[in-house]
Nucleic acid binder design. Structure first.
Lengths: 231, 231
DNA sequence: CGCGTCCTTGAACCGCGTCAAGCCAGGTGG
DNA sequence: CCACCTGGCTTGACGCGGTTCAAGGACGCG
C-alpha cells in the first residue's frame, strides 16, 4: 500500500512500489479545511488530485456567480484530470469537510499512466463509471419534477455520506442552499419538499440535520426512473 | 493503422499491431442502418463499441417510455464500457444515420487494456473528457431557460455534425422531437425558439432542415455560461 | 439581550408543458 | 393528374408548477 497515504481505496495503489515512491516524491498531500478551494474554474490544469479522506463538491458557475454542484467526490475519487497541453479547468472543487487530498502533476502522472497499465485501467474505469452516473443525472434533471429531484439529491448525498455499506439510514448535515445547488433549484423548494417528506415519516429533521431513515423507501418513490441508482 | 477499419481516429490504433490483430479476430464490425438499436437499456454488458463512422445517440428512458438523449457520439467515440462482472446497461444506443461500429468483448478488451498502456491512456482521456462535457451539460440543464437550452442543443449537435474544423456553419437534419429529447423539452418549444432565431437571422429553416449560419454568434448568446463550450 | 443566519411558510407572478387547431409537404391511390 | 391522407411543423390558449419576493420564526453567538 502507498507509503504516504496508507489509504486502501486510493487508485495510486495500483502502481508499482517504485512508481508510488516517484509519485510521492513529486506529490503534495496537504490537508484542506472545510470550505477551501482545491482548484478554481478558469485556472490552469497542473495535474490531478486524489481524494484520500473527506468530501468534495465539484462546482461550475455562470457569470452571475450562481454555482451548480455537478458532482460529489469522496475518498478514492479523482478530481480534475491530466492535461496534455495547456488547458483550463471548466469546473472548480471545494471541500465540504476537512479533507486530505494528494496532488500529482501532469508530467509525473502521464509517465505513471504509461508505465502502470493496472493503474491506468483503474482510473479509466473510474472516469467511465462517473460518466455513466453523470449521464443518469442528465436524464433526471430533464425529466423529474422538484420533489423527485430533492429525493434524488438526498440519495446522491446519502451515497457520498453513508458509513456502513448495508445501512438504510444516514445523517446529512448540508444546509438547504447546498442541497439546492446539487439538484438545481432554490432553498425554499428544498425546504418544502423536506417538510412533506417529514410528514410522510420518511425523514427526520433535527437541528437542521436531515436524518434519512429509510433509503429503500426513498428509492421506491423515484423507481420509475428505474436504472437511476444502480449504476 | 488498424487493418480492419483503417480509421485514423479509432482508439484501437493505439494498440500494438499484434493486439490489433487479436482484437479484430474476436471483434465484429457490422454496419448498422439508421435508427437501429446498438444495445438496449437493461441488457447485459458484453463489451464496448468503437464508432468508426456515423452518428449515435445514447438515450435513457423512464418507465413511461419517455426517452432522454444523454450524449451524442461520432467517429472515434466509444459506446458502453468494459464490464468486470455481470452488469447491465443503464442507457441504450441508437444510430442517427448509417454507421460502422466495431464491437470488442469484455475479456479481449480487458487484456488489451492491461498490455497496451497507450491505448488504455487514450481511452481514459476519452472518458475523462466526456465526463467534463457531461458535467457542463448538468450545469446548463440546471441554469438555462428554454431558449438558451435550444441554442446549447444546436451547438452540441453542430459539434457532432460539423464537417470542416474551422467552419462557422452547419446543416442539421434532426427533427424537432430529436432536438427536444437532447435538451429535455418538447417539440413545440423547440419550434418556437427556432422561429425567433430565424427572425434574428441566426439560422435558416429550409424544408425542415436547420441551417446554422453563424455558430460564433450563437455561442455569444450563451456566453454567460462562459466555459460551457470550450472544454 | 440583541444580532445574524438559516429555515419555513405564504403569496404573486410567469415560464413552460400540454392540448388543440391549422398548415404544409410528401406519398398513395383512384 | 388530382383528391385524400398522413406526419411533422407552427402557433395560440390555458393552467400548473416553480421561482421569486417577503415576512416571521428558531437558533446560536457575541
Amino acid at each position: 500500500m502507498c507509503i504516504l497515504c496508507q489509504n486502501p481505496k486510493c487508485l495510486i495503489n495500483h502502481c508499482t512500489p517504485e512508481w508510488q515512491q516517484k509519485i510521492i516524491g513529486s506529490g503534495r498531500m496537504p490537508v484542506y479545511p472545510k470550505g477551501q478551494n482545491i482548484f478554481m474554474e478558469g485556472s490552469l490544469v497542473m495535474g490531478a488530485y486524489f481524494v484520500l479522506k473527506g468530501k468534495v463538491k465539484i462546482i461550475s458557475s455562470n457569470l452571475n456567480g450562481k454555482a451548480q454542484t455537478v458532482r460529489l467526490a469522496k475518498e478514492g475519487h479523482i478530481l480534475g484530470h491530466t492535461a496534455i497541453g495547456p488547458e483550463k479547468y471548466c469546473v472548480g472543487a471545494v471541500t465540504l469537510e476537512d479533507s486530505e487530498i494528494c496532488f500529482v502533476d501532469n508530467q509525473t502522472l502521464q509517465e505513471a499512466f504509461l508505465e502502470n497499465p493496472k493503474f491506468t485501467f483503474e482510473v479509466m474505469q473510474f472516469y467511465s463509471k462517473e460518466l455513466r452516473k453523470s449521464e443518469i443525472r442528465t436524464k433526471c434533471f430533464a425529466m423529474m419534477n422538484n420533489e423527485e429531484k430533492v429525493i434524488l439529491g438526498l440519495l446522491y448525498i446519502a451515497d457520498t455520506y453513508i458509513k456502513e455499506v448495508e445501512a438504510n439510514f444516514v445523517t446529512i448535515n448540508l444546509n438547504r442552499q447546498e442541497i439546492a445547488q446539487i439538484i438545481g433549484t432554490n432553498p425554499e423548494q428544498v425546504s418544502r419538499v423536506l417538510t412533506t417528506l417529514k410528514k410522510d415519516r420518511l425523514i427526520d429533521l433535527k437541528e437542521r440535520a436531515i436524518i434519512v431513515k429509510d433509503i429503500t423507501a426513498l428509492k421506491e418513490l423515484i423507481s420509475q426512473y428505474c436504472f437511476a441508482l444502480e449504476c
